[in-house]
Design a binder for these strands. Structure first.
Length: 509
RNA sequence: GGCCGGUUCGUCUAUCGGCUAGGACAGCCCCCUUUCACGGGGCAAAGACGGGUUCGAUUCCCGUACCGGCUACCA
């Protein structure tokens, strides 16, 4: 009770981190920080066949981007390391041995082929009481046979000996009491033939050694919970066991089933937090970051997918999430991911973020497009003008590039139908006026003044301003979009505005 | 198949026995805007089904249906 809250996120480094993974991290983090506790990152790399180079760095980078920095991790160190299970290999064998001595585990010598054969022969084969005696293990074999097998270095695994007819139950922080009949659970492998532990053993041993107080993980782990409960009982005592919470799954938007990388590709939205390039295939999977999401928005949208604070509030800062988070307000049911709503969160965050901060993020995106930015102040001003029409960061490209360079594509087709000599005269005159301003030493003017002058000029020529606005807009930005025309003129200044008018006039001639 | 879990508008969700079932996204309409957005207003849209318990069930219990997860020397 009075011991410090310690939680862990324990991914296996097999590829990019998807939405569900990041949300698991987030809930862990929020819970820990809410209780002024510690958040640990532990890398579960016990399956050497699935290990993918770079995946661990990717995980660390993703956490950093999201602002969910671990207190202890392979990178940050800590008092309970090492934090990579592959580096803890010797530890697990000791506990497996202890279980054997206690009679809670046993050696099994069946080869993969033996098992495959057995599964073919018997429908719904389970390595458990029902078939244990038909297999090659230290329960079915005599002591002498086992000793010989061991002395000959016969490959073996260690399996948990699940008790006969017991009820295993535990209190899930989200689901309440969950119980299992042990006759339904099989003798899971604890230690593999290569000496590595399986998840089942490793998670229990490490959670104990790392003093984990609360263990949150995806719902897909619920069925193996009884194995872990049993292991806790045999090894460290149930009173030492962390509190469990099994998080609901994030489901695909259409149809059924949990969200996968393929769904994102199919439906055209990211599933990974950041870009991930598979080192083997060189195939890159797009991430939320690169798609133009702000980390604040990403964290926000994930947090409210399956959790809410009981009010109508939807926009939360990380700090607000920490303060308001509680595990018992997490949903039981899975949630379908809605990309449209996800974008809405980003739109909101773009509006919330101040222009200076936004400028830092937008600048590299524009520069990558070959847009030259000479002054920071100018960029900040432009961002203020266009931010409310941007949903994703790359939207700033189309929304603001005409502030930096004259439009290349000009939608003259939208001007032509109503174009006539009167308008031509007007714009020729307008350009001259701007030229005169420059001669007088004026670079620019306030938008409201520009508008007044524009309307006055229109009046003297007996033209309706309304008929002139669209052509003017297209001359300036190339199409029917963007902020108010006079804001644009004010921003790009007389010289540039004049050139764009003249250029367009020549196109229309 | 077995085990476990889940089930409120199309989607995310509020409701902890008393509701004309609220909000948000998406959709549609209107206003604002001489562009596109933003913003404001409005419309439409839900308690899987059947039994109980109760004065009263979306809320509690049971059953059914449907959906999902797991069922590896993967996590």
């Amino acid at each position: 009770m009075d011991s410090k809250v310690r939680v862990r996120f324990a991914p296996s480094p097999t590829g990019g981190l998807h939405l569900g993974g990041v949300r698991t991290v987030l809930f862990n983090y929020l819970f820990a920080k809410h209780h002024k506790g510690e958040f640990i990152l532990r890398i579960e790399d016990t399956d050497q066949t699935r290990f993918v180079a770079g995946a661990e760095d990717y995980i660390q980078n993703t956490l950093a981007w999201c602002g969910l920095v671990p207190d202890e991790s392979p990178l940050h160190g800590g008092a309970y390391g090492p934090y990579r299970q592959s580096e803890r290999k010797p530890i697990y064998a000791k506990y497996a041995q202890q279980l054997i001595e206690q009679g809670n585990a046993y050696y099994a010598f069946d080869t993969p082929a033996d098992l495959e054969q057995k599964r073919k022969e018997i429908l719904n084969f389970q390595y458990s009481k029902a078939h244990r005696m038909e297999m090659k293990n230290s329960i079915s074999l005599t002591e002498q046979e086992v000793t010989t097998l061991l002395e000959n270095n016969t490959p073996y695994v260690i399996r948990i000996k699940v008790p006969d007819a017991e009820e295993v139950k535990f209190e899930d922080l989200i689901r309440g009491e969950v119980s299992f009949e042990t006759s339904q659970v099989d003798d899971k492998v604890l230690l593999k033939a290569d000496g590595m532990p399986t998840y089942h053993l490793a998670v229990v041993v490490d959670d104990h050694l790392m003093r984990i107080t609360h263990a949150f993980r995806g719902e897909e782990w619920l069925p193996s919970a009884p194995v872990h409960i049993l292991l806790w009982k045999y090894l460290f005592g149930l009173d030492q066991m962390p509190k469990w919470a099994h998080l609901p799954l994030i489901l695909k938007p259409d149809g059924n089933g949990k969200l996968s990388k393929r769904d994102g590709e199919r439906l055209g939205f990211p599933v990974f937090a950041m870009d991930w390039t598979d080192p083997a295939t060189k195939e890159t999977t797009i991430g939320f970051k690169e798609r133009g999401f702000l980390p604040e928005a990403f964290v926000n949208l994930l947090a409210v997918l399956g959790w809410n604070d009981g009010t109508d509030k939807e926009i939360f800062t990380l700090q607000e999430l920490i303060e308001g988070f509680s595990i018992d307000r997490v949903h039981k049911g899975g949630a379908k991911f809605d990309y449209e709503k996800a974008k809405w969160f980003n739109t909101e965050w773009i509006k919330q973020l101040n222009n200076q901060e936004l400028a830092k993020l937008v600048r590299p995106i524009l520069e990558k497009e070959g847009i030259e930015i000479h002054e920071d102040d100018y960029l900040v001003k432009v961002i203020g003008l266009v931010k409310e029409r941007c949903h994703l960061l790359p939207d700033f490209i189309t929304q603001s590039n005409f502030f930096f360079t004259p439009p290349i594509q000009i939608d003259t087709a939208s001007i032509l139908p109503k174009w006539d000599d009167k308008k031509k005269v007007f714009f020729t005159e307008l350009a001259k006026n701007y030229a005169a301003k420059i001669t007088d030493g004026h670079l620019t003017a306030a938008a409201s003044d520009l508008e007044t002058e524009f309307k006055n000029l229109a009046a003297t020529q007996d033209l309706k301003p309304g008929d002139l606005m669209l052509p003017f807009r297209i001359m300036l930005v190339g199409g029917k979009f963007g902020p108010g025309v006079f804001d644009i003129v004010s921003c790009i200044e007389f010289k540039d505005a004049m050139q764009r008018i003249n250029h367009c006039l020549s196109l229309l001639a």
